[in-house]
Amino acid sequence: MKTEIEALKQKACQIRRELLKMIHTAKSGHPGGALSAADIVTALYWQVMRIRPEEPDWPDRDRFILSKGHACPVLYTALCLKGYFDREHLGRLRRINSILQGHPDMRKTPGIDSTTGSLGNGLSIGIGMALMGKLDKKDYRVYVMLGCGELDEGMIWEAAMCANKYKLDNLCAVVDYNQLQLDGTVDEVMPLEPLSDKWQAFGWNVLRIDGHDIKIILEAFGKAEETKNAPTVIIADTIKGKGVSYMEDICGWHGKAPSDKELMQALQELEEVDL
């Protein structure tokens, strides 16, 4: 188990390096929220989810919806490293004629289960998938990653009510709770606390975890799968820009590409990280 976790940590580190290179080459994109989500995405794609990269549309696959679509560099990197598409595409993020759009497009990118980008919609789409899974008596699971700023959207709470109505225990939401949104901290822009209580009141099984501890992340996904008759939300405390010293907890790195020099420093820090 220990070596497995070490391997996942290294994978997350590799994903961070690749996504920063991708955003640097594209000269635009959203590093902060991609870095905060990297450990969770790694756990999902390398350990938790039942997938077939060689058959992206496999009907029995687990689904992942990146509702905070702007963090897509982390997802694109994961999909590429899992073999959904060739590495050359990573250098074409946000370019004309690219399969990698500025926000995820299920029709252009193999492995993207749902188009996203406009915030607040992914949980509802996940409900549609989870409901159909139940209807068809399939055992696939649906994972939806939400941003914390995204929880300002009223539709999230429409969906939260609805998932409880249908007791969607095959649905697991993850809140990437990095505490920062575009104009400032969550507390400044639109306070969310008491966040666990809110989800609990909506009938969800709530787990609050350290979103950068791979072992804890894996345990949480395990508990979610064991929970019956209720959807689970994992509120993952994360750090925006995690892994790059000058980006950590800085709002300004929500949607900005690093310069050549900044990239070099970031890659160096991520090489040196003590795994």
Partner: peptide, 11 residues
């Protein structure tokens, strides 16, 4: 959006 999710599953 739920209907969209259902259509994504071939319904």
């Amino acid at each position: 959006a739920i209907a969209a999710g259902a259509a994504m599953c071939g319904k």
